[in-house]
Design a protein around this nucleic acid. Structure first.
Lengths: 271, 271
DNA sequence: ACCTATCGTTCCGCTCGCAGGAACACCGAA
DNA sequence: TTCGGTGTTCCTGCGAGCGGAACGATAGGT
């Protein structure tokens, strides 16, 4: 997931030493630690990024003073709500989201299933919007809005089919396994991409989380003469509900919604 | 916001002079600039926080290298999507949100109006969840999830009624005017708080945005023998839809939902 | 097309903030 | 209580980074 330093870790500070502002760069790396672990102490952070314990402690205190981190009981730290606040500002600049909102709402209401809007980030898909419904009992708690590897989710795969940059990033990043159904063979994956390219949609049968499946259609924009995916609309729910008898109906709705967003984006400037 | 450290101690006007990690503290202040202005250049940031232009430029470059900022055309910067990603992680640790999710979904579906879940932050209310519906044409575009002054929104006022800390923060922070209907008189405000305390709910008639009104009920938890508001459920929409003939029905649903969340929180540990 | 005002970036030297190690305070478990 | 663990603080030298000025690039006014 941290594609930046994926190549070769090598504890000596080679990884991106061209860093201006050494302490700021350390601060960012401290923050990055919390992407995988919900809460951490000074010692663990120091070990993770390879600095002195005192340095980590000071850094944590400084970030907490700035509101980017918060203290939890036991002197440990966790990401602060200020990040949520700023994150909302960041994501709200996407006109994509604004355009997609009514379409996603309508989809959610007519299908009565959870609807997502994902965009490619590195070799992952980041869900920038999600319209939830109540799932009696079980819930899709893959974590809200977390990044997901683009090869296993339907949204990621359908975007890769229509986005060479993403496809290459996925293949270079490898295909980790999440469930027994996850596609991990690059050859098979590319075959699925070709298939997706011709049919214009993708399903993912319990490849991310057992019991849950999804299907997705791409949001396409004209870019340099060809149509490229900049986002995808996906519907996720218990397998029997989205890939069972309702599959054709759900699929038609999702494709129609994605197409509507694509069309609306033509008249919008920017992404 | 910075009110956290503004309690009383340390030096008088040097509001951030106690800084550990000077450059990290500057970096945070740079980020803070983007809370009000969507995109900024080095010169504006330098002027805003009072550092040399070169310093601001280096800081912006470092933050962009870390993904907290992104470059936009024209060499300017804006908040990066990584903040959104981390922000989601930060907000997902709130068990409040998890508990509230099904209730909010149900409210949204039965009322067919936009439903929000807010928590107090400083003297503001921060909306940590929002269930949207399609509002034909006009939309409540107060900006998703932005903080709102707690005195004018129904969620903020009902929380203040059941949360002395928030009430004091609001009164100390002043009551800015947003629309001709905004309550700006502290005396009148406190009277409304007393009224809210007895009736257990609050309405806000176009006090935040013309044409839109809301009503809210508090999420209460036992804290030190008395019941204190830690959140509020609010419904917002065009005035005639939420405060018109449907008002009593909407109000009953909101109060029932908030009570359900309060009850569910008793059996949950943490916040 | 020229010129100019203003932007963002880079260079450089002096300085002072900070990394690092060790000592300290503290908590929970054995 | 002891002990291994934590987070925090104190100190010092050294080098990272701040500020000022110089440099290209860009845009708008003329």
């Amino acid at each position: 997931m941290r594609a930046a330093a994926a190549s070769d870790e090598t504890t000596h500070l080679a990884d991106h030493d061209d860093t201006p502002l050494r302490s700021v760069s350390i601060a960012v790396r401290v923050l990055d630690c919390f992407a995988t672990e919900p809460q951490l102490g000074a010692t663990q952070v120091a070990r993770e990024i390879g600095v002195a314990k005192s340095t980590a402690s000071r850094m944590l205190a400084a970030l907490a003073a700035g509101g980017l981190l918060e203290r939890s009981r036991g002197g440990r730290y966790r990401l602060g709500l200020k990040l949520f606040e700023y994150g909302q500002i960041a994501v709200n600049r996407l006109t994509l989201r604004e355009v997609a909102l009514p379409v996603l709402c309508e989809l959610r209401d007519s299908l009565r299933e959870t609807v997502q809007l994902g965009i490619p980030v590195g070799s992952d898909v980041l869900y920038v919007d999600r319209m939830e419904i109540v799932n009696e009992g079980s819930r899709f708690h893959n974590g809200y809005y977390r990044r997901t590897s683009a090869h296993s989710s339907s949204a990621g795969r359908v975007m890769a089919a229509f986005n060479p940059v993403l496809a290459r990033a996925v293949l270079e990043g490898g295909l980790p396994r999440y469930t027994p159904f996850t596609i991990v063979d690059p050859e098979r994956y590319q075959q699925l991409l070709r298939q997706a390219r011709t049919q214009g949609w993708v399903t993912s049968r319990e490849e991310v989380e057992p019991g849950f499946s999804s299907l997705a259609a791409p949001v396409l924009v004209e870019r340099g003469g060809s149509r490229m995916a900049i986002a995808a609309v996906s519907v996720v729910g218990p397998t029997h509900r989205v890939l069972g008898p309702r599959k054709e109906m759900v699929l038609a709705s999702v494709r129609r919604g994605a197409a509507k967003i694509s069309k609306a984006l033509v008249h919008a400037i920017g992404v």
